[in-house]
Write a protein that binds this DNA or RNA. Sequence first.
DNA 1: CTTTAAACCTGCTGGC
DNA 2: TGCCAGCAGGTTTAAA
Length: 275
Amino acid sequence: MPEGPEIRRAADRLAAAVAGRTVLRAQFAFARLQRFERELAGSRILSIIPRGKALLTTFDNGWTLYTHNQLYGVWKVALPGQRPDSTRSLRVALDTASAAILLYSASDIELWRSDEIEAHPFLQGLGPDVLDPALDVDAVAARLQSPAFRGRALGALLLDQGFLAGMGNYLRAEVLFDAGLHPASRPRDLDAAQTAKLARALLAIPRHSYATRGIEPTKGMRADYLAHEGERFRFHVFKREGQPCERCGTPIVRIASQSRPLFLCPHCQPGRPSQ
DNA sequence: CTTTAAACCTGCTGGC
DNA sequence: TGCCAGCAGGTTTAAA
């Protein structure tokens, strides 16, 4: 369910609640992890940091908890000892004196030695984080036109975590619409201005989603990540099939790209004739 | 190498 | 109301 912005907001919430705190009790649902309950009890939580859509929770005794929420994992903050939402399967619970952080439903949960975590296969494959403040338009434009990526179709490239970590399916649709590009087009087809426009969208849209703290509620999206007040990140094409494009009035269409739903305006994002 | 399809994990929604 | 199929904001693996 979550893309980079949602994961980063979750990390912010978790860190605000327990970073720097001592773990009074650690609980894991999976038997293969239960030996770490004793290892982590008494340790201090150093940081909770996203890497693309993965989350790393580091402890001062040399362990790092790797978690990936995939489509369904949900992090919650609760009072110490409290376990809300018992209906959902609780996978990880870390209690401190100030708060408990709880991970429900996720299945990708691993403990690594902190000095070895960079060797994690998923982390090794990640490109720069799209929400990294140090990443700028020139760097993204150069990456788009680099030999490894310039021949790839944008529809696939924008989901590839090795290109930019943290991108996901709604961001892909919104970025392509903003840049006025069809998913079948490739970086090598773009001139410098188009490349720059795409690079700007690739940075601006995830950052805006993160800053506005939430996508608008749509059918099937889990409430945990939605904004509850203030300005919202609005979809222009995602899940807007049949609705008029806000720029030209042409109905938004839904296609499949990489076996994932992709929404676009056929007029504002014209496809190329062939190849 | 790139692209595609299927599998996997889990929860929610919609239809019967 | 209950059950089931299909879908989902993701990723990996195998095959083409």
